[in-house]
Design a protein around this nucleic acid. Structure first.
Lengths: 336, 336
DNA sequence: ATTCCTTGGTTATTCGTATAACTTCTGATG
DNA sequence: CATCAGAAGTTATACGAATAACCAAGGAAT
């Protein structure tokens, strides 16, 4: 900046003021032009660190994820966060810890020494977690999970609403016997499992139907369990005409079971998935109707909260999972 | 740091020297202890910007990707880069541009103003690309692609070797009629298509076999083309006993074709894929034998080059694609 | 007794930017 | 004619750490 000043024949302060002050008429047009020319001629670029040193806060947001970047699933979360940050001219300082608490603490420490404007603490899958000690006192948001201690605001998918919407989609098509293949037991406490189940029950109840335990299965989220439980449900003596699979991988297993039983989707049985797994759901035949976890939106929202300097309370913000309509749902056979 | 100095009853310089100088005996043990105690008591954390301002270079590496984070595929690339960076205590300053050159230039500019130690320019898929103007003169590496102008060093997968290894795997199992379903035409110039094809030819040649054009197909990488071309190959009057699908999605299509023809894998036809797509290859029945793109290793290597201050030439470093053995390959039927 | 080394510090300066406070000049006004 | 008000800049300082250069005191060597 001193070089630019010298080249333009003005003082360093003038250069700074010309480059930064929005209030127009502080300097003569002539001077402003000389400064801008010198800047271009010399290829001057401001030193962000000097600026931060003076101002106290950097144009960066810390992003700590357990394995977000690697997960095919949740990579979009980082994308959303970064998009939103860039809208305010901020960059993301990111680290994937792979769950290593030591690395987590060390990298968080480094981030804080860089005076990040805030920290997003993102989890690969929706759960209740303990945020690191050093995060208290720092502007931060838990993403795709919830702070168990309830001190840091969280952004997470609305699992209940999702399960409700998925089940409703099938009920509205006219089904009255709707099976559920869940991803985990309720005892696991996994919000995705518990929430989607609750939504399933709520939708049935609202439609005046009872929850029939013989139509509900709890697996481990793999396609093997999807296959096994779909087989069980469809070969029972009073089979469902539709199945809500609480994740797409389970749905894939169900597809294989349906195929092995020489039945067809959606003609004989309608299926709704969950997750809208990019490398799976669109490629199944027929295309799987499913619900999308709003990763990009959640990433955006988390950064939003930081930029808006949200109250550091334990508020949990739940975001809608939009329906991705494809071709695996139709009305039940009996009804025209 | 001044506060710490005051609390410990020494000068700021002493604090700095005690905290940083490796050479032990500069100060008395007593003084050192007083300083360390004060640091802990006050919860002092160094201000990285002040340090950078003096030293001229930050403990950060810029990472610019076109869509790397979102791609289920290549997210691992960012993981590898970050791992390697952190081994030297550096953080990744990352941006996904989605291919927007303007955003790219702007974010690169911001990164440079943060005095990053170097910039990794990563592409979602392997191709030849133009690096941004501002990158010249900056320590940088092109990742998962190659600089067309040949000025920036590149790290990319060894497609030829991969194609060669995939084909060899089938030849070694005893197959002599090996089909190829490629992901693109050779005219596309796509290194993955051209390289894997070249490797295929080289392996056949080495085995003393001719390349039979009737066994080779060029698609667009989707499972639809995989299905179509596998159908063509397998219903021809002299069908192959094994197919090398140049990507896993194509292999998936081929699986469906095999299934529709009431044939079995690997009994009737062996299949090798490419990409080891995490959400696909392990879940096919039988598990797909395929090759992995070394994303983590490439990410690591790119940062490595930056940290080692590699010569800024157009060198291309090719990395091996390891074989992921599953169950889709066996010897041909005729041979016991 | 002077010089010289060692130990254990301190002082002063630098990095690049932002900005409060000051200066100088030119017209206009009472 | 004194003064007051903008316009157009400049000067000086602070942000926080690192480090070259300096200093003081105590012993050892000459």
């Amino acid at each position: 900046m001193h070089d630019v000043a010298a080249a333009a024949g003005v003082s360093q302060a003038t250069v700074s003021l010309v480059l930064n002050s929005a209030s127009g008429s502080r300097f003569s047009e002539d001077t402003r032009k000389r400064v801008r020319d010198a800047v271009n001629r010399l290829g001057y670029r401001t030193n962000a660190h000097a600026k931060v040193l003076r101002e106290g806060v950097a144009g960066m947001i810390g992003f700590i994820g357990d394995s977000v970047a690697t997960t095919p699933f949740a990579g979009a979360i980082i994308e959303g966060a970064q998009q939103r940050a860039w809208e305010d001219g901020l960059l993301l300082l990111s680290v994937n810890t792979g769950g290593d608490r030591e690395l987590e603490a060390a990298s968080l420490d480094t981030m804080l020494s860089y005076k990040v404007a805030g920290v997003v603490y993102a989890a690969m899958y929706h759960r209740r977690l303990e945020v690191p000690e050093a995060l208290t006192g720092v502007r931060s948001v838990v993403l795709n999970s919830q702070d168990r201690a309830g001190r840091v605001p969280s952004v997470a998918p609305d699992e209940v609403k999702g399960g409700y919407a998925a089940t409703s989609r099938l009920l509205e098509a006219g089904h009255t016997r709707v099976g559920l293949i869940n991803i985990e037991t309720l005892e696991s406490g996994l919000p995705a499992a518990v929430g989607r189940y609750d939504g399933y029950c709520a939708a049935l109840e609202e439609a005046g139907l009872d929850v029939d335990p013989s139509l509900v299965r709890f697996g481990q989220g793999g396609e093997l369990h999807g296959y096994k439980y779909a087989m069980e449900l469809l070969t029972s003596n009073n089979p469902p005409t539709a199945i809500f699979c609480a994740n797409d991988r389970g749905a894939w297993g169900a597809y294989q079971a349906v195929s092995d039983l020489r039945l067809s989707i959606p003609g004989d049985v309608s299926i709704v998935g969950f997750d809208n797994q990019a490398t799976l759901a669109p490629f199944l035949r027929p295309g799987l109707t499913t619900f999308e976890l709003p990763f990009v939106a959640m990433g955006r929202r988390a950064v939003d909260l930081i930029l808006q300097d949200a109250e550091p309370d334990g508020r949990v913000e739940l975001m809608d999972c939009p329906l991705i309509e494809r071709n695996s749902v139709t009305h039940p056979k009996e009804m025209p």
